[in-house]
Computed example of a mutant assay.
Amino acid sequence: MMPGMTPHAPSATPQSTSRRIIVTGCDHSYFHLVDELVASIRDHADTPIGVIDCGMTPEQVARLRARGIRTITPHIPDHAPRRAIRNRPSLAINISKLWLDQMLPEFDLIAWLDADTWVQDGGALEQVFAAGEGGALAIVPEIGAKIANLLGVRWICPGWMQIRSFLYKNASRARLPFHIRKRIGAKPLLNAGVFCLHRDATIWPVLRRWQALILPRRGMAFTQDQLCMALAVYIDGQPVTFLDNGHNYLGPWLLDESTGQLANLFFPHPPVGIVHMASQKAMRGGLENTMTIPTVQGGRVALNLRYAGMRQFRRHDGRPENIPPS
C-alpha cells in the first residue's frame, strides 16, 4: 500500500437493481471537483457512486461516506512503477481504471467519469450506460467539434512531415514496434475521461496485457490508460461503441442564453451532456477564474465552467456581461 492510501471497508451503499455504478477518483487536492461531480450526478440519478482514494483526508472520506458514497482502495499491480506512485499517488487512479471489473465484482456495468467532469444532462449519462450494456467499450473519440488540427504533425519540408499525434508519441515513448505505431498513429484518441464497460466485457484482460507491457516503461503511468484502450481497439479489434462528443465535451465552449446551459458547437447546439474541464487548470482551481466564451445568440460571457461556477452564473439570472469582441 502506498503512502497516503488507506484501505477502506465497503460503505453501506444500497445495491442498485441494475447493478451499475459510476466511479471516479481523486486525492485531497481534487476533492472539491469530485464533490461537485457527485452533486451533478445526484441532480439526475441515484446510481451508486464510488471514489478511488489516492490521498484524500480523513475528513473528506467521512464526508463522502456520510452521503452514501463508497471509497475504494486503488489497485496497484506488481509491474507498476512504485517510485513514481510514491512521488505522485494520484497516478494510481489511471492505473486502476483498467482493473475496475475486479475491484467492483458486485457490479455489472461500470461507468468511469474523471474528477474534472460533471453531468449537465442526465440523458447523456443514461446513454453512456446504454452504450456499454452489450459488452463493447463505450467511449468518445476525439474527432468532434474541437477547433484544432485533427492530426498533430511537424512539417519538415514540402511534402514531408512527422506524425506528432498523442497515440504515435506515446506508443513511441512506450517503445512499441513501428508496425504498431504506424497502425495507430493516425487514429483518433479514445478519451478515457468518460467510458463505460460491462464487467464481462472481453476487453478487460486485453487492456491489462498491454498495461503490463507499457507500465514499467519510464514516464508511462499517466497516459497508459488511453494508450492501452487504443491498442485494444485498433490493434486487437476489441468491440467499441463510439459516443458523440457531447458525452465527453472538451470544447470549444458555447453558452445558450435561453437555457443558461453549455451548448455543443455543432448546430442545432444541443446541451452538452457531460462537461470535461481537461486543460482548464485555472478554473479547476478557483471559481473566481473565468474564460470568455461566445453565446448561441451572438453575445459573449465570462464563465467558470465548473458545476459550481455554472450554478453561480444561473443564480444571477444567467445574464451575459456586455463583453466586446476580442
Rank of each mutant, 00 (worst) to 15 (best):
P3I: 06
T6C: 08
P7V: 03
P14H: 13
T17R: 15
I21G: 03
I21E: 00
I22C: 10
D27P: 01
D27V: 03
S29N: 11
Y30K: 12
Y30E: 07
F31G: 09
D35P: 07
E36T: 07
E36C: 05
L37F: 06
R42E: 04
H44G: 11
P48G: 10
C54V: 13
G55L: 11
T57H: 05
T57I: 04
Q60E: 13
Q60G: 07
V61F: 04
V61Q: 06
A66L: 08
P74T: 12
H75S: 11
P77W: 09
P81C: 03
R86C: 09
N87H: 11
L91E: 02
A92C: 13
I93M: 07
I95P: 03
L98N: 09
W99L: 07
D101Y: 02
Q102V: 08
P105Q: 07
P105V: 11
L109F: 10
W112E: 06
D116W: 02
D116S: 10
D116E: 10
T117F: 01
T117S: 13
T117N: 12
G122E: 04
G122V: 03
G123I: 09
E126Y: 00
A131L: 09
G134K: 10
G134V: 05
G135D: 05
P141N: 01
G144C: 08
A145K: 00
K146G: 14
N149C: 02
L151S: 11
L151M: 14
V153P: 00
V153M: 15
I156Q: 11
C157A: 15
G159M: 05
W160A: 12
R164E: 14
Y168F: 15
K169I: 12
A171P: 01
L176P: 07
P177H: 14
F178K: 12
F178T: 13
F178W: 11
R183L: 06
P188V: 07
L190T: 10
V194T: 14
F195A: 05
F195D: 03
F195I: 06
D200I: 03
D200K: 14
I203N: 07
I203F: 02
W204D: 04
P205A: 06
P205I: 08
L207V: 02
R208E: 07
I214Y: 05
C228P: 06
A230F: 02
Y234T: 06
I235M: 14
L243C: 14
D244G: 10
N245Y: 05
H247R: 11
Y249T: 04
Y249D: 07
L250I: 11
L250G: 12
D256R: 14
D256K: 13
E257G: 08
T259M: 11
T259E: 04
F267N: 10
F267G: 05
P271L: 06
V272P: 07
Q280F: 12
Q280C: 13
M283L: 09
L287W: 01
E288N: 14
P294D: 01
Q297R: 12
R300V: 02
V301I: 06
A302N: 12
R306M: 04
A308G: 13
A308T: 07
G309L: 04
M310W: 00
M310F: 01
R311N: 07
Q312I: 00
R314N: 15
R315V: 00
R315T: 08
D317I: 00
D317L: 10
